[in-house]
């Protein structure tokens, strides 16, 4: 399914995994950002990261998740989506949308040797 097709936002998009153009996992569709255009609402961006859980979790749970995982949010522009199916596939790299920063930070902590 292409982003311009008719999409059920909750059952067909929310909470789907996101893959970048190289098919690397780079987050989940945690929430959606809308904008008004010509008197109608349209999706502006996918919101990714634990900060986007606000409003989707009870307050105490949101604070707990924030304490463990932080409250960062990355925005993936709607135009960056190539396809929507059992995952959302982007036509840009994860880095372009700021989606791989934590993964990259943690990668530096791990030795890069010894694995077949």
């Amino acid at each position: 399914m292409k982003p311009q097709d008719k999409i059920q936002l909750v059952s067909g998009l929310l909470d789907l995994p996101i893959l970048d153009k190289d098919y690397r996992y780079c987050g989940i569709v945690d929430d959606l950002e809308f904008e008004e255009a010509d008197g109608a609402l349209r999706v502006k961006a996918l919101l990714v990261g634990p900060g986007a859980y606000r409003g989707r979790l009870p307050g105490w749970a949101f604070r707990l998740v924030g304490w463990i995982a932080g409250k960062r949010i990355a925005r993936v522009p709607w135009d960056a989506i190539a396809e929507i199916g059992s995952a959302v596939v982007l036509d840009v790299s994860a880095e372009t949308c700021g989606l791989h920063s934590t993964e990259d930070r943690v990668r530096r902590l791990i030795p890069h040797r010894g694995a077949l």
């Binding site: 995994p17 996101i18 690397r24 996992y25 780079c26 987050g27 989940i28 990714v48 995982a69 934590t102 993964e103 943690v106 990668r107 902590l109 791990i110 030795p111 890069h112 694995a115």
Partner: peptide, 23 residues
């Protein structure tokens, strides 16, 4: 855990290619 939060995962990748999963 990795799949729930959308991290890189799997041992078909080298451990440092899926760092949060590895940790």
């Amino acid at each position: 855990v990795a799949q729930f939060f959308g991290w890189e995962w799997g041992r078909h990748k080298k451990p440092w290619e899926a760092p949060r999963f590895t940790l």
